[in-house]
């Protein structure tokens, strides 16, 4: 991939990462808006998904009756079996009209004064919509890893807290979550890795505009959606190699994120298994 990007790597250098203009016609390639788009969509997706996934995992492993645990946990994980292009199509057909018809106008009238939620809403295809689809997609990952981490917490930990007179929730908060936090954090980073690289679902819902206006209800672009959108139309060595270079940036970022995530998850799940002699 380094060789594939070789025409554009030395030509633009760091300007590639910080440039805001993407103009294939004039051979100017800067991907700062796309990098921002990737970070913002993934960030919002995590903001939505993390509380929900952890809450669901806590309910399933701490509060739910035993017969409910596995079936419901499994149904949540079924979300991971849905192909990403189907998520995108669902986002386009169901979520986009919903956002356009009710959520975006409401946000605009309530918070339109702030640059974050003002401006034209791009007909429902915008950064916020893409973030919501991403949130749905990373939820099974985060909740599955959280459930595993909670299951790795020793029983004594809960019983000790309960025997001190803690309520079930207090035991969870003080004794269980604290113990499992490394693994849960690993799961969140794993979800982040998935969100950063997700292509089809984002491409279909984000509006595909090569700019980052600062407003969440404006169309935007991510690194992966830019590749998917323009690769087949790219003409000329420099254009193609610029797209390959985006792929290279994405590869390095997700590689780093995944290594961190796996280290955290391994420490909890595997380390626990070894110490427990299982």
């Amino acid at each position: 991939m380094f060789t594939g990007a070789s025409p554009s790597l030395p030509r633009f250098g760091l300007r590639f990462l910080f440039g805001v203009v993407w103009d294939p016609v004039h051979g100017i390639f800067g991907v700062a808006p796309e990098i921002l788009g990737t970070l913002v969509t993934s960030g919002i997706a995590l903001l939505i998904s993390v509380p929900l996934s952890i809450g669901a995992a806590i309910f399933l492993s701490e509060h739910a009756p035993a017969w409910l645990r596995d079936p419901v946990g499994y149904v949540i994980e079924l979300l991971a079996a849905v192909p990403s292009v189907v998520f995108g199509f669902w986002g386009l057909a169901v979520l986009v009209p919903l956002m356009q018809g009710s959520v975006d106008p409401w946000l605009q009238s309530a918070f339109g004064w702030s640059p974050l939620l003002g401006g034209p809403n791009g007909g429902g295809r915008n950064i916020l919509t893409a973030s919501v689809v991403l949130a749905v997609m990373v939820t099974p990952t985060i909740s599955a890893v959280t459930r595993e981490s909670l299951a790795a917490v020793p029983r004594d930990q809960r019983e000790a807290a309960l025997s001190l007179g803690a309520t079930r929730w207090e035991a969870t908060r003080l004794a269980v979550l604290r113990y499992a936090r490394t693994g849960i954090f690993g799961g969140i980073i794993l979800g982040l890795g998935r969100a950063l690289g997700e292509t089809m679902a984002v491409t279909m819902t984000i509006g595909n505009k090569n700019a980052f206006s600062g407003s969440l209800i404006s169309p935007g672009q991510t690194m992966s959606s830019l590749i998917a959108n323009e690769f087949t139309e790219a003409t000329g060595k420099l254009y193609v190699s610029a797209l390959v270079e985006i792929g290279l940036v994405l590869l390095l970022v997700t590689l780093l994120v995944n290594i961190v995530a796996r280290l955290l998850v391994w420490r909890v799940v595997r380390g626990g298994a070894v110490a427990g002699g299982a």
Binding site: M1, T3, G4, A5, L190, G193, R194, L196, G197, E198, T199, S224, I227, A228, F231, L243, V244, G247, L248, L250, L251, T254, L255, V257, N258, I259, A261, R262, W266
Partner: peptide, 17 residues
């Protein structure tokens, strides 16, 4: 394990390149 987390589009770009 790390490889399972790599975005599929990156793999596409790699094979293309």
């Amino acid at each position: 394990d790390v490889m399972t987390g790599l975005p599929s589009i990156v793999i596409g770009v790699f094979v293309y390149g």
